[in-house]
Computed example of a mutant assay.
Amino acid sequence: MTLLGASSVSAASNAFIHPGALHTLVDFARMKAKIAENAQPWTNGWDILIKNSHSSLTWTPRAVETLYRGADGTHPENYSALFNDAAAAYALALRWKISGDNAYADKTVAILDEWSAKLTRIEGTSDKFLASGLYGYQLADVAEIMRDYQGWPAQNLDRFKTMMLKVFYPMNHDFLVRHNGAKIDHYWANWDLANMDSMIAIGILTDRRDIYNEAVDYFKRGKGNGAIDHVVWKLYPGGLGQTQESGRDQGHNTLAVALLGAFCQMAWNQHDDLFGYEDNRVLKGVEYIARYNQGANVPYTPYSNSDVTQNVISSNGRGDKRPVWELFYNHYVVLKGLEAPSLTMAAKATRPEGGGGNYGPNSGGFDQLGYGTLTHTLK
């Protein structure tokens, strides 16, 4: 598979919708109109965005040539620079799209340009594959928002795309194919899902139908734990599906929700309904996680893989908040009219959702782009 070169998109019917990663033009028009009307809950979501220091015009990027995630005993970890800059770029891009103030656009592309001019490698321990996934999808999503900004020179956008294809995509692909040389079920679902998110976002950004299809195919038929039948591996009556990381801890279990939501939303915006795949299998997993983390009991079947056996569901991190529920609530309940009582409770409990910087300074608070109340509320 070639990494660079001509797009495989050759016919208008096969062309990508732009912008069409996490958000579309229709989404931005809705956000802008609702803020102009001072409507709720959008205004509460907007307020939390503009109060976050990452959305400030004083933000200064800290790009590096080699990003390190995971203590390898030689190089200091510096990946916090990227997860903070990615969060800032997203927050600033939203402020531009909603306010129309080009100062926010200029700051956003300045961040993207700093990284595309400097970053050449991602290294560290196996954790480097978390970086390639999490920050790959976030950066690609921001660039997709900014692609129509007239103040971003075409050559700079092209340089950014080249970085995504040379630095991030090869790692995404390699991890999903080789899994760092480990057994196929060794890595938890969120490792696969992060790299799938990056892959699908890069496919959209660079008009690479082959990369996009590779990600969607893995969701449906992949061998690792990120494939949907492995993420939601045990179905129960009543619309519940036990998730792969339920016996690990609830922080990582809800991270899987964050990454699943981003993946399905990006596909949805390209007219592929993975939310509804296999009779709403994603919803069954989301409802399972939401129910347990809202304090109710759920059925549990002992889970085993090559490394662990987990006989009980983990209560570690139970009830911790991540800004992940609004996307699912608005898709399944508001748009499709399905019943999801626990998801509905979770969405209400976390509203308004913030973004990176609102959930602590550590990497876990930046694993999702957030601001779902502002960006995903439909009505």
Rank of each mutant, 00 (worst) to 15 (best):
36 A>K: 14
36 A>F: 02
36 A>H: 07
37 E>N: 12
37 E>V: 03
37 E>R: 13
38 N>Q: 15
38 N>F: 06
39 A>Q: 12
40 Q>L: 12
41 P>G: 04
41 P>H: 06
41 P>C: 02
41 P>Y: 05
42 W>H: 14
42 W>L: 03
42 W>K: 06
43 T>C: 00
44 N>K: 13
44 N>Q: 14
45 G>L: 07
45 G>T: 09
47 D>L: 11
48 I>T: 13
49 L>G: 09
49 L>Q: 10
49 L>V: 08
49 L>K: 10
51 K>F: 02
51 K>A: 14
51 K>E: 12
52 N>S: 09
54 H>Y: 14
54 H>I: 00
57 L>S: 04
58 T>V: 05
59 W>L: 10
59 W>T: 12
60 T>V: 15
60 T>D: 14
60 T>Q: 15
62 R>N: 12
62 R>P: 00
62 R>C: 00
62 R>M: 02
63 A>D: 04
63 A>Y: 11
63 A>E: 06
64 V>W: 05
65 E>K: 15
66 T>F: 03
67 L>Q: 09
67 L>C: 05
68 Y>M: 03
69 R>W: 04
70 G>H: 08
70 G>Q: 06
71 A>S: 08
71 A>Q: 09
72 D>G: 08
73 G>S: 09
73 G>H: 10
73 G>E: 08
73 G>K: 09
74 T>I: 13
74 T>S: 13
75 H>S: 13
76 P>R: 10
76 P>F: 03
78 N>T: 11
78 N>Y: 11
78 N>E: 10
78 N>D: 10
79 Y>F: 14
81 A>R: 15
81 A>Y: 15
81 A>N: 15
82 L>M: 14
